[in-house]
Design a protein around this nucleic acid. Structure first.
Lengths: 79, 79, 79, 79
DNA sequence: AAGGAGCCGTTGCGCC
DNA sequence: GGCGCAACGGCTCCTT
């Protein structure tokens, strides 16, 4: 960027971002749909939501542990 | 759903949700990338961010007012 | 705070917070009362509620735009 | 309310509501202040927050149990 | 490292 | 009494 902000460039960035945010909203809506569907089929959305959350946490923890392990291994020259 | 929750069904729902959440994260990351890019090109991310935010809010407000109008109309039987 | 958490201090904080939360609930109830009253007087609570919401949003938006202006000005060294 | 909505009345209701919402926000801010203060004094806000939450839940439970007890007592004619 | 802003999930509230 | 929505509070990330 030379000579101050370029209007067209700025608008292009904004458009790209807004387009992506729409995509994001679209995916969020899809997720809502799945919960609605499973609710309609007699499942408890609240509980499924909890399950998903727990699995996410566990996954993160596993990654943490993995990272820690790698750290140790590199520390002792086993990389 | 008859005879209690079906394990496979539950797992399928969870998998669909987790897949969608990955998509969502992916899109979020794309957005981050755009901000990083525009920053690298000398633009002020903070300002662009606020512009995007204001445009979104304005849009929402327009929708709100439209909704109010419809509410009035339905209230006076013009639906 | 020296030598670990002091029981009395903690309890005092908690009490202050709980007292404030009661105040807050009390105010919320007052708001509910106003809606109930206006409804009893023949007004449409739903519409009033939306009006209040739109006014709040508009106000926020105005603040946002002000903030953007300040941001621009500080960006060009006019702070 | 006769002869349709009265503009002044509507505005008065809105003003009352907006005034109360300001009060509410003010109390919320006070609560935030307490947390900030306790944090500055070396306490862990997150933990205190948890304590407050637990106490609230316990209180609700106690009320529940009390209500249940009264229900039983009235059921056996001990009201 | 601390503070603030934006995002997300949860809760509460009114409506049906 | 359940549903859906809007508001609130908490969490995370990013910046200073």
């Amino acid at each position: 960027m030379s000579n101050g902000p370029n209007k067209d460039e700025v608008l292009q960035y904004i458009n790209r971002i807004e387009r992506l945010e729409e995509d994001k909203k679209s995916v969020s809506d899809d997720i809502k749909d799945v919960y609605a569907e499973l609710k309609n089929n007699g499942y408890d959305a609240k509980i499924i939501r909890k399950l998903v959350s727990i699995r996410r946490k566990s996954k993160e923890e596993r990654k943490e542990e993995e990272a820690l392990l790698e750290l140790y291994m590199s520390a002792i020259g086993m990389e």
